[in-house]
Design a protein around this nucleic acid. Structure first.
Lengths: 211, 211
DNA sequence: TAATTGATTGAACGTACGGTGAATTAATGA
DNA sequence: TCATTAATTCACCGTACGTTCAATCAATTA
């Protein structure tokens, strides 16, 4: 109207993309809040104030396709986080290194806690191997962490031990808390995550440092 | 007919109890196989070859009531298992004691693995605090285990450390494997449970024994 | 302006499910 | 034998859900 020609090439495309994006964001929020099975397609449409058919215009595969798209999104994001600055860890003292690893691992899962719950509680709805991707992510960290421990041993910082298992143990302890909090069953006897993590690290350092 | 008086007091009661029991056993099997939400009431009735209304005759609360009954059953059973022979552990060498604890913990969860999955994946269907009971069961083991460690330290068998946390760590490592296998996501990078447990124990003993 | 394209609508479909209740059947006790 | 009791049947209800599609509307283009 009052504006000039056309500020963007096509308004339609732009609005369509916006609608699609709104659908995705709303679905993610509702999935997080009520779970996948707990979220009717209608609730998503209603939430953005559009009619029932709209979701199938953008996602012919329906609800399931949306979940797939969202999971891929999440995994790409997580991948970036965990890859960040692997080498700087080597130069930190054991305690700080453990602290960093622990906090990253925790963040990795808990920053999308409500949504991640779908992976744990409803992952049978996925044909794609979301679960496999996730466990690969973790298992690869085991060997990576173990080799870090080994080099620390060679530097004389920590005692000799089964490094792979030490890595598994440390990661397990952190993971169990996270998994517990995601599936809603407290296995660790702790409410306060930060305190738990700090004590876990102190305990581990105490056992690992050369006597 | 050919038999004498009446071998049992009342045939009706007997058959009714049998029907009720058949319903429970069938429900447990189907719940384990397909999950709670994945098991229609009709499937249970069809499986025992009876009509649709029958389930509500014995369980007015429907499907949900059945799950409640089954969970109580399971928890009573588990309680008995974990209580067994606490003191004999004290007299075993560290390695054997850890082995026993680890195997009991594993058995506790895995002997009803398929059914336990409901607790982890669908426990939101329960008003009753099945999850709370379960975590209590675990957390109480932490302190029990920690005090066992402390007395071993006083006997000079193991080094000084944060005993509560040592207990948590050991139990966590075992639990994570079990939880992984129940929810179907491999967090431990291991397929063979027995080997995993043995190595975990060897690693732990190595760290704990007095140098 | 007129034709075209595709985004959006909303009523409707089919199905699966949990649940109900009056009718039926068979065992029980008088 | 007959009345009573309760186990069992099954047709039926209401609802929630995922999904479809012909119709409508608005933006774009010729």
């Amino acid at each position: 109207m009052s504006g000039g020609r056309r500020t963007d090439r096509n308004l339609r495309q732009e609005q369509a993309a916006e609608t699609r994006e709104k659908l995705l964001r709303t679905a993610k929020a509702l999935f997080a809040q009520n779970g996948y099975h707990g979220t009717p397609v209608r609730a998503i449409n209603r939430e953005i104030g559009m009619a029932d058919g709209i979701l199938y215009h953008y996602f012919p595969g329906g609800k399931r396709e949306m979940l797939g798209v969202l999971l891929q999104e999440i995994f790409i994001e997580k991948g970036k986080l965990i890859e960040a600055s692997s080498e700087e860890l080597d130069n930190l003292p054991l305690k700080e290194a453990l602290e960093l690893i622990s906090s990253r691992l925790t963040k990795l899962f808990l920053e999308d806690k409500d949504f991640m719950r779908i992976l744990f509680r409803e992952h049978e709805v996925l044909d794609i191997e979301g679960a496999v991707l996730l466990s690969k992510l973790i298992v690869e960290r085991h060997t990576w962490f173990a080799s870090m421990l080994e080099s620390r041993h060679e530097r004389g910082e920590i005692r000799k031990m089964d490094f792979l298992f030490a890595a598994k143990q440390f990661i397990s302890m952190n993971l169990l808390y996270v998994v517990s909090s995601i599936i809603g069953i407290n296995f660790t006897g702790t409410e306060d995550l930060t305190e738990y993590r700090l004590r876990a690290i102190a305990h581990t350092v105490d056992l690992w440092l050369v006597p």
